[in-house]
Design a protein around this nucleic acid. Structure first.
Lengths: 301, 301
DNA sequence: ACGTCCTGTTTGTCTAGGACAAAACAAGTG
DNA sequence: CACTTGTTTTGTCCTAGACAAACAGGACGT
């Protein structure tokens, strides 16, 4: 297990840090310092890859690489989620129940977790289930992952099981094409779909006609799809991990390829810190999304 | 719509061709030839991006870039799927029915498509539905996309709707933990999940305990997950589009981080052309997968 | 005719260091 | 406290060269 080393492409794949960045950090900060193989190419030990992933995780939370790299590895865990704290406080009241669910994931008991979620769904009804269970639970899983008490694969497991649950719930809804036609997708490099599914659930409940295209659609294709489906709204999702700097440019470019009458909505944790854009409507919470939908209906009545 | 130009990062995102490759092609073949902005950075017009995507698509089928770039753009469409033809012939007999389904996707009639699929599922039963409907239909959609008669977003729509259907079907199965514990996932950069879902369906029908982790798991995390879940088998999926050259190295690395007693199975269109590897069992068809499962049970009885 | 070995060509990826612009921060001023 | 200005940090892009792995095609032997 310790004998494996990673070449620079493997590190890029596994950490999400580009080759350029990896080389630049080595030049500037002196970390990471991979050994070299017989061709002079970089060989990263597994230990450095892990530390790089931890650093990347903290960067997505708003920390800066210079400081993180200067920090000794042991102290990295302590830096966790200063930004999340403020948010976490105001929901801590009803965390009692969610704790159970988190524990089931942590124990890798998939069957019990699914059953518990189904029960909650039956008890709360779909809308409250999404807003009061799935949304906060997802945030908590994210936080647990940030502070290291959840492994990546545990987050993946949670995501996968919850995705299934929501899709199943959506499938049972009567297709009510009374509201706007909403095309839901994400841009390339953005693979997180849970937020999109939550929105889809709420919109479907409201009777909107949702067209789910999955994730990672090239921009030109989004334009074509919007035209072909006569979409009233294109809803995109950006996660916290998505490179912030690219978002305004992306929205601007997308606006250019969309039909003029099609509205462009961007939501998710990634847009919370984005301000400057006249190209799209920014939506940061699920309530915002519902409000935006209601507004749209008023304006197109 | 014509005014938009793409910088090199956007082209990489939208085509899947790395920046290195884009610059190399420009140097060697004289295509693409982007204009430059005031900083000397490359600006690709949308037209070249489209041609690049078409070239990438044909490369995934086994064509070579040198020839493709030399071919005038108008003739590119004609090169479509020589490799697929041989396969397509022997299923053309029962294509009659599938044509209907394809037509519904092409018309973007999601409701009718879902209903037609549900009917087929009810009529055929889950196992035959997967093997005789979903698998060939997925291949056909891929071919339609390759020869340009399906847009990317139409393929995405098909994929998304079918994923939902399969997941829904899996959810209704009784969790029968009698067989091996199988961990299903894919490596980073591999986002296609439909094949994995088909296998999961068949395995679940056979009573195996499936643990779906979604796609894009870093290698070290796959190892941790296998250990935590005490997985008997780790099943990976590689699509045709996945860079072939990376697969053997990936499997070798993964083998090193997996517990010794855990079997490693790799399947999907991407492994069909891979031979040299003693690290994993290669599985190219759904029948192979079922056979491998039966074998495993014999050996561990 | 078919497989196998060899050789040249094609192709992708790596390396190095330099340059610059946008974002984040710090410091001073109204 | 709000604003503007300068400075530092940081990521991305650039060129150009080198090399190894994969492929194609020919020569050879069975």
């Amino acid at each position: 297990m310790n004998t494996a080393t990673f070449n620079i492409a493997a590190v890029e794949r596994d950490t999400g840090l580009s080759k350029d960045v990896l080389r630049m950090w080595e030049r500037r900060y002196g970390f990471p310092v991979p050994s070299r193989d017989s061709n002079g190419e970089r060989c990263y030990p597994a230990e450095q890859v892990d530390r790089l992933r931890q650093i990347k995780r903290l960067m997505d939370l708003g920390h800066r690489p210079g400081k993180l790299i200067a920090t000794p590895p042991e102290e990295l865990g302590a830096l966790t989620s200063r930004r999340s704290k403020s948010v976490a406080v105001d929901v801590s009241a009803d965390d009692g129940d969610l704790g159970e669910l988190l524990a089931l994931i942590k124990q890798h008991d998939t069957a019990a977790f699914q059953q518990a979620m189904q029960q909650r769904l039956a008890r709360q009804g779909l809308q409250r289930f999404v807003q009061d269970t799935v949304a906060p639970l997802t945030r908590q899983v994210g936080e647990k992952w940030e502070d290291g008490s959840f492994e990546v694969f545990e987050e993946h497991l949670y995501t996968e099981l919850t995705k299934r649950l929501l899709r199943q719930a959506i499938a049972t809804l009567p297709g009510g094409p009374r509201g706007p036609r909403v095309l839901l997708t994400s841009v390339p490099d953005e693979q997180h779909v849970l937020g999109l599914l939550m929105v889809e659930t709420l919109f479907a409940l409201e009777g909107a006609e949702c067209i789910p295209l999955g994730t990672q659609m090239p921009l030109l294709e989004i334009g074509r799809a919007a035209e072909a489906h006569q979409a009233d709204i294109v809803a995109l999702s950006f996660s916290q991990a998505f490179p912030q700097r690219q978002i305004p440019g992306l929205l601007q470019q997308l606006r250019l390829v969309l039909p003029e009458k099609t509205a462009l909505w961007a939501g998710g944790g990634g847009v919370a810190r984005v301000t400057r854009t006249g190209d799209a409507e920014l939506i940061t919470t699920l309530d915002d999304a519902l409000e935006a939908l209601a507004n749209w209906r008023v304006q197109h009545a």
